[in-house]
Structure formats: C-alpha cells, structure tokens
Design a protein around this nucleic acid. Sequence first.
RNA 1: CGGGGCGUAGCUCAGCCUGGCAGAGUGCCUGCUUUGGGAGCAGGAGGCCGGAGGUUCGAAUCCUCUCGCCCCGACCA
Length: 478
Amino acid sequence: MARRKIAKRADDYAQWYQDVIAEGQMAEHSMVRGCMIIKPWGFGIWERIQREMDDRIKATGHENAYFPLFVPKSLFDKEAEHVEGFAPECAVVTHGGDKELEEPLFVRPTSEAIICTTYGKWVESWRDLPIMINQWANVVRWEMRPRLFLRTMEFLWQEGHTAHETHDEAKAEVQTMLDVYAECAENVLAVPVVKGVKSESERFPGAENTYTIEAMMQDGRALQAGTSHDLGQVFSKAYGIEFQGRDGTMQHAWSTSWGVSTRLVGALIMTHGDDAGIVVPPKLAPIQLVIIPIYKGDEQAAEIKPDVEAMMTSLRAAGVRVKADLREYLRPGPKFFEWEKKGVPLRVEYGMRDKEAGNVVLKRRDTGEKQIIPMAELASVAAPLLVTIQNDMLERARARRDANTHVLDDYADFKSRVGDGGFFHMRWCGASACETKVKEDTKATIRCLPHASEPDPGPCAICGEAAEGVRAIFARAY
RNA sequence: CGGGGCGUAGCUCAGCCUGGCAGAGUGCCUGCUUUGGGAGCAGGAGGCCGGAGGUUCGAAUCCUCUCGCCCCGACCA
C-alpha cells in the first residue's frame, strides 16, 4: 500500500515537479548527467507541439531544412559577443576516432554560425532574399544545473533563421514569429504568455534585440517560453551574408532567428499540473479519452467489451483520440490513478450498473467533475467537452496569471512581495545598474518590457530617475 | 567550480556508530480467489553492498584513494 506518492505543490513545488514527471511517465534522467530520456507519453506530447508549431511555421512562409551538428571552432570565433556568450557552455569535440583533430568542432549550442555562413554562399543578389528556413534539431549547452525539460544539456527545439533585404522586413519577421509563438502557446498549450522585448542584459548574445514570450508558472515564477531575435546586420557582417542591392551597391542582409524548445513541455506541466499529476490540454493529449471497463468474470466481460468497442468506434468517428484500457491484470482503481497521473483529459467508466441503465460515467481530469450520460450520446458530448476543457484550462491559467500580476511603485513593497511569486510591473529608467541591483537584492530579473503596455512616465522604482517608457515586468524566473 | 549529502534487490531504503549467515517495504514471476478509487492468500525469482587498495582470522560495516549521482550557490532556451 506504500505506493510512491506525489509531493503537494504547496509543500515542495520543485519536488512536485520531479514527481509528476516520473509518475506521469513523461521522462527520466539518463545515464549521462544532465541528459534526459523522453518517454513515449512525454514525447507524444512534444510531437503534437511540434506538429502545431511546424504547421504555423510553414503557413508563415518558411521551409524546413537541416544543418549539421558540428561547428568548426574558427566559424564560431567570428562573432565576438556570440562567442563570449556561448563558448563557456559548449561541448567541444577534439578527437575523431583515435586521432586528434586539427581544428576542434563545437557541438552546436545554436546554429547561427553554420547557417549564416551557408546563407552567405547562397546569397548574391537582392533577388535571393528573403531566405526563410527552419530546422528541427537537438542542441547542446553544458548546463551545470539541469532540470528535466526546463534545462537539460541536450534539448530538442526548432530554430528558424531568416535573412532579409531590409531591416523593416526583418523586424516584421521577428514580430510575426513572436505572434506565432504566443498564439500557439495560448491556443494549443493553453499557456497564457506576455509578449515583450528583453532588456540588454537578457538579450541573445550578438542580437540587436530579443523578443520573448513569458509565462507564469503556478508558483509565480516566470518561464521564458520562446524567443525571437532581431540580429540586425551583426551576423551578416560576421559570417558574410552580402548581396548586391537594387541600387547596385553591396549590402549586408538583415537576419533573424527564433526558437522554442522542449522547455515548452515543462511550461505545460507547471501551468496545468495539480496534486494528482499532469493535466494535458486536449489538443496535445496523445489520448484524449480513456475507457475503463469494469466487470466481474468472463460473462460480464463478454457483455461489457462489445459496448466498449462500439464506443471507441463512435468516438473515433467524432475525431476523439480514444483508448480502452483492457489490461486484465489491473483492477479499475490502479487504472484510474495511472491515467490521471498522465493527465488524460477525459475518462469513461463503464460497468454492468451503467449498461443496465444505458449510461456511461464521464469524468473530466481538469475539474474532477463527473457526469452520467446515455451511452448513445457519448461521442456527441465528449467531442465538444474537449473543446470546453481546452478553453477552460487557458482561462484558469490566465486568471491565475492576472491575479498574480501587480503594478507597484514602491521598491520596498516589491522586495517584501517578490518572494511570493508573480509578475511585478514597475517603472525602470533603463539603467543596467538598476537591473543588477534588483537581481542582487531579490534574485528577480526583468522578464521583458511588455508590448501590450502603454508608456507610463514617472520615477524609476529603483533609483528614482526618470523612466519614460513602459513599465518593466520583474519576476523570479526559471 | 565552491558548500552539503548519498551510493546495499527494478524502486525507496534499513543494517555501518559497536566488524561475525545479505535485510525490509514496494515492484516482479506462478497459481487460485478478486475487479465501481492503488485487492487477498500461497509459493518463487532477484545482490561483486559503486570501484580499487589497506587493516583484520573475518569487512556492506573501520582506514585511504577513486568514480558516480543528488541538493544548495555562480551560468542558462
């Protein structure tokens, strides 16, 4: 009876996070420190995120391609800020077979170096632009403090890399992709996000500007869920993307890059999970409805099972991803727990009691709400209910985010409240000294300057100097 | 890389202080009984006690070294 249990969120949020991943069979640690084995259930969710993102990436005019894992060190060295930012966390290959390499190869932490260099070869004229390519790949960053999905040494992501004729066109691309990320996060993952621009200290190494979608986890900490970078001409100059313009002059292209990673799965878990386990939004659930048959003995089984088959047929016809848990060696109880921990949105219980009444029991994972409905109506009830659940999950997450978002002017007030979590909108003069002070005082950082805010001039909450623009969002982050 | 902790059955751990047959719970296998929220009984399989050296008649236990992992800090999608 001493089964493994999941820590309560309120008691130990970090432990809870690890427990729900283990119990929900999402992933586990590998034999290689910092690396993650993504199990079928977790990977199934990631595959659906991928598919949704990929559709949107293609719908906005991009094509997929694939570039190599290894980057020659000399290529990496071409952009100073970029090197400085990434070199400390790069894995480096020094040997091929048993021979030492003449030039070490970096395992890509991101692919600007190799992709921009390639673009340089492809581009001669303004007619070759824009180049709009995305790749799905793994990247490696030598992290010291790994956490499943949130921060692993190797992770999966997509990275889009585009090159344009004008800065305006590149800027538009950066915003388009930020919008795609935000729309997908909200409508598919049911994770509400704040779009905004990063401060200089949080910028991608080498970028002119970094834009972000920031989500709020249930413990009130922020999670950067996706980024889109305006690289200006920095990488074009470093890696030689030059073209002859309409006016006949040689010009450097304007490039962008943007990415989301398996970290989104972590965002999903920490946005929707509850004390019983993970809760998967219907659009991402590999199984949307699980049927648990209940019977005693072979005779009852013979009565129940055909009905289960019929239910599956009608549910499939209604577009519901359904599974019947027919394992003979488990009683219904353990099955309930297992699918609950995995976060399957809907559960049907069906036994003799229901058969005699012509009903089924339908239970929502997100609210725990149970209803008894005629079996004949199952498909017509379940399909729209999945839509309702998807919407409700987003609305609950949005309400929680909004309830933990505060507008503050008093720095002392902020310091006393930041530990409780939440987003704090405060005036900021733009000085990195103020940012550093906040980080030292409270471990909080500026998550972004939100796009949706209006300028709100007044004294900087930290130093009192004039702050002209929008209020910055301060929060502790993952 | 600093500070702390832990390596014993698939998993969680006891045993170590005070040296003397390798343990528990859970999981797993077989059979029977069970089946509407983590079933019961019976039988069974499963170990180089992280690794190497040392002390000792004898080491999971004491000593030295080593490797690995976890947690807390500095870094990060």
